[in-house]
Amino acid sequence: MVEIAAQIGDTLSDIPDGARLMIGGFGGSGAPIELIHALIDRFNTTGQPKNLTVINNNAGNGGVGIAAMISAGMVAKMVCSFPRSADAVAFGTAYMNGDIELELVPQGTLAERIRAGGAGIPAFYTPTSFGTDLAIGKATEEFEGKMYVRERWLKADFALIKAECADRLGNLTYRMAARNFAPLMAMAAEVTIAQTRTLLDPGGIDPQEVITQGIFVDRLIAVPSPEQEEALVRDEVNYA
């Protein structure tokens, strides 16, 4: 059953300290900026939630989104593939000061670990990272003459994602390359919260066009004119 929230803050009020959050997006495309900023608002008002583990491809850019969560002191650990970029100052500063933990995961392994988490597959083998520093301590096995590394599923308490279009049953579509990790995260989280530009009645999305099925979605909030993270970063916006 999908809850349709009236206020964005209502969708986030039960995220506790120490929660594991998957946040959709690759760079600025697909970043659910309004959900993230509403969570920061809650932290600024109540001091919660903190000590979060955030799972995203990157570690925030500029002064908005995940970068603003890190600057606010809400994030204890990042699980990501690429925390380094020209604008990743918030993460870089926290990391060099020893204030944040990093689990670095190759991008395809990150995607597949999340997919496995959502699909009920506790572990799988991949050729990625075999023989490298990122495979240290992991089991390996030979299949048909080639070596593979065993990787574990990745699950979360909550997923925050950005949809282009939703119906009231939680079926979702995405805009262009903003899809990236969102369909996987929607499957892998206990509670999936989606912001959507458009909210339609059932039947409003052609069943053939549905990308994420409503069974994977728990809460919806309509955000009719969402901000684009990359545009905010280029405008040097700081959310505090």
């Binding site: 593939s81 925390p83 380094r84 990743a88 995961v105 190759p106 395809g108 050729p127 990625t128």
Partner: peptide, 15 residues
């Protein structure tokens, strides 16, 4: 030194 980042490179070299 610095912040490590791997992205998709380790995946791209296989396959």
């Amino acid at each position: 030194k610095g912040v490590p980042a791997v992205g998709g490179a380790m995946d791209l070299v296989h396959g």
